[in-house]
Design a protein around this nucleic acid. Structure first.
Lengths: 314, 314
DNA sequence: GGCGATCCTGCTCATATGAGCATCGGGGCG
DNA sequence: CGCCCCGATGCTCATATGAGCAGGATCGCC
């Protein structure tokens, strides 16, 4: 296309999109046939001169979702638009909202839903509406009671999701990470704990997030790991954690000894799920999101536009 | 519209604009009739959920232009889009480009074109193409030879416009502002100078810019005014200058004594022009742009989107 | 300069869309 | 309790748009 056509296509686009003229009218104004105008408009679109944005907190980016499904082998992908987002909190809220929407629309309605905990999961539990399902049993899939600063958010998350879904919650009464392997094995041997984990294994849907491997991690905040521990994990290649288990960019366990002291489903058990929904957003989690998708820890990903583009192009 | 319809209209917009589905297909997907879909789409547009931007350096904003014409009584208005603009230099360049385009398309082609000088006018002269007109005589409408730092840009502007338009330039051989009134009157009495000004009066089109009343003004840079002079003018209510004459927000001369020492067409002579094209862009010039339009110093305004919106809403 | 390949143009025709109208249904009022 | 009014709905029909094709200009290549 030469410069004259480029300018014409811009003039045509202005008249078409800003002035609501018909292609025929534009043709008369610019002394072109209406077919030429149609072709100019098509080219303007194709060459990216025209950007159409949907400005709404709950808007999604369907073309990116499609690419994620096709190029990264996901069963489903939900990508929230970051158009007009102010803060990273808003992005987080949008993503949680989208995850709640997805869960609500999920068919068949899960009978047993395995959940992790953390900031993202708590927000999802808040965004869910009463009656989002009928009779869902929610079970925690990794440990984490009471050590974190605002005690009970892990429990509140599971209970909230269950209550609003007209079902009950089964909590995993155990710390996330034990200091000694023997203690962890003892806890897992406990009848109640073993029963919960067995129930978790049988869940038909898992819902979990991922954490970045940095000092702002909930594991540091909760006191399960020190900042030095995290630094060491990063040195070994960790990009983040899923259900408390730290992975590298290929999804492999970074520190098997630490992993052995972590209570809850293993990553392989997570991978075996019929449906595994990962909710991951924010620039800090680009790397871990990539690891989660690459290693097939999830079959459904709920994320934001920038993270999604990172997965596709980065 | 209730929330459910709002969400539906977003889903519909996503499918329509991002996935290129037809309204009928969307209707099937969302279990709606195609008419409902059409109405949802119309509402989404109307409520501003859908933004269509034309991303091109030479794109214009026709709806804003129309409002400027209608609400501010201009014969014509050219508003360049600021979508995707990086620097203020780029905005300046786009505006100058638009002014050059406008001049090129102007019919009837001006026989005598009166021009001022300055950064904006120089840029316009650069953007004009060879042969933009045939046989245009360009005449300077205000003084300003040789005092400014890069000497000769005032002359280069007029000569450049004339050469590219296949005509000749008539320069006004005088400083912009004289120190003493008597000197100014003597200069204006000079046969050559008087002849140039007489020719300028007869121009059928004027092309000029406006300067902000601040210390970055070309008059300070050129040494015609000191920074203290400008501060004093601002104190008296000056918002900027047109052809070297400082005006307040109503377009009135701020300092009649200074004005009397300024060589060139008077503002009233400028107002009498059949066509007066003002080219004003950048946030620093919002106030002076408003004064120029309000006091009818121009009949055509070339500006940027943000300045235009300031004129309409501010 | 002749020749074919390629791109561009303006057409026909099928499809998608929007305007305007009859109908339906729910809530306020006698 | 019935009636009416108003907004929402789904239609008919006119219009706008896009797909595909045939003729013609343009270019490189011999």
């Amino acid at each position: 296309m030469d410069e004259i056509d480029e300018l014409l296509s811009i003039r045509a686009a202005e008249l078409y999109y800003e002035e609501n003229k018909t292609q025929d009218e534009i043709g008369q104004a610019l002394r072109l046939t209406r077919w030429k105008v149609g072709r100019l408009l098509a080219q303007a679109k194709q060459r990216g001169f025209i950007r159409i944005e949907i400005l709404h907190p709950r808007a999604r980016r369907l073309p990116i979702e499609r690419r994620l499904r096709e190029e990264r082998g996901l069963i489903d992908a939900i990508v929230v638009s970051s158009a007009g987002v102010g803060s990273s909190e808003e992005l987080q809220a949008r993503t949680a909202q989208a995850a709640a929407d997805y869960l609500t629309a999920l068919r068949p309605v899960p009978r047993t839903l395995g959940v992790s905990w953390g900031r993202t999961l708590f927000e999802i539990s808040q965004q869910l509406r009463n009656g989002w399902a009928v009779g869902v049993n929610v079970v925690q899939i990794n440990g984490g009671v009471s050590l974190n600063r605002r005690p009970g958010t892990a429990a509140a998350t599971a209970v909230g999701i269950a209550q609003k879904g007209g079902g009950s919650a089964t909590l995993l009464p155990s710390p996330a990470i034990l200091e000694r392997l023997a203690t962890k094995e003892a806890i897992e041997a406990d009848r109640v704990v073993a029963g919960v984990i067995e129930l978790a294994r049988s869940a038909d849907v898992f819902l979990f997030s991922a954490g970045a491997a940095d000092r702002t991690s909930v594991h540091v905040e909760s006191g399960y790991l020190s900042e030095a521990d995290v630094d060491e994990l990063v040195r070994k290649g960790a990009v983040g954690d899923v259900v408390g288990r730290y992975i590298d960019s290929d999804g492999n366990i970074v520190d098997p000894a630490l992993d052995a002291r972590t209570v809850g489903l293993t990553l392989d058990e997570l991978r075996r799920a019929p449906i595994g929904i990962a909710v991951v957003s924010g620039p800090a989690k680009h790397a871990v999101a990539d690891a989660v998708v690459r290693s097939r820890l999830c079959s459904v990903l709920v994320t934001d536009e920038s993270t999604a583009l990172h997965l596709l192009d980065g």
